[in-house]
Structure formats: structure tokens, C-alpha cells
Computed example of a mutant assay.
Amino acid sequence: MARAFTPKVVTANDLIEGDVIYMTADDSWTRNLAEAELITDEADAQIRLLDAQRQAVRVVGAYLADAKPGLNGPEPTHFREDFRRTGPSNYAHGKQEAQANV
């Protein structure tokens, strides 16, 4: 028996800078998960993933990540995605330098 579809966001890494990025509803990319498009239809999710994978000059490793609606936009449902959105863990740089992530 197949699992029921749960909401997703398209995520990848920026090819040049390596940052975690998320696809928005207007086909652009953002480093802020709250600005990502929350996809609630399985067929739409597959199409959006294919759109992302075609952007190989901009992104690498695109995939669908489970998410849920939040007060300010999509929120992760799995520890891995929550960890990815805060940036590298080896020392404070990038997203971890921002006061909002402390």
C-alpha cells in the first residue's frame, strides 16, 4: 500500500556557493525556507522537481523534502531538513552568523 502524499518543498544546493536553497512559486530560488513554495499535490511536486533538475547551471542535488504549513511559511518536518536550513555546523559562518539563527 502506497503512503499518502505529504506536502513538500523543492530544495537543492546552490552550485557556486553551496548554500541550501529552496524553489519559490515564481521559479526563483531563496535561501529562506519560509519563502519556499509548499507543494500539496503529488503530480505538481514531480513537475516542480523536474523543473529544478533542469537548472543544472544553478543548482545541484535537487530533491523533494517533507514540509508542513507554518505561521510564516513552510516548516521542516524532519530533523535533517531543520539542520540543513541553519547551515554548516563546524563553526559559525554564513547563516549561523545571523542573529536570527542564534
Rank of each mutant, 00 (worst) to 15 (best):
R84F: 12
P69C: 02
R84A: 07
Q46D: 12
V9C: 03
K8C: 09
D44H: 13
L38T: 05
D14S: 09
Q46T: 09
S28G: 12
D19I: 00
D66C: 08
V20C: 06
L33M: 15
P88W: 03
K95G: 00
H93L: 01
P76M: 08
V10C: 08
A65I: 02
M23A: 15
R80C: 00
A62E: 06
A12G: 11
F79T: 11
G70F: 12
I16W: 00
F79Q: 05
P7E: 06
E37V: 03
Q96P: 01
E97W: 06
R58T: 09
Q46S: 13
W29D: 08
Q99R: 13
L49Q: 08
S28D: 12
R58G: 00
K68L: 07
V102I: 08
S89L: 08
D41I: 11
Y22T: 03
D14E: 13
A62G: 10
W29M: 08
M23E: 15
V60K: 14
D51Y: 14
P76D: 06
D26F: 11
F83M: 10
A92Q: 14
L38C: 08
G87F: 09
A12W: 04
Q96K: 14
A62P: 03
N32C: 01
A25N: 12
L49V: 07
E17Y: 05
D82P: 00
V9K: 01
P7A: 05
V57Q: 14
M1G: 15
A98L: 15
L71W: 01
T86R: 13
R3K: 11
H93A: 03
A36N: 02
G73T: 06
D27Y: 15
R84W: 09
E35G: 01
A43P: 00
D19K: 07
V10T: 07
G87S: 11
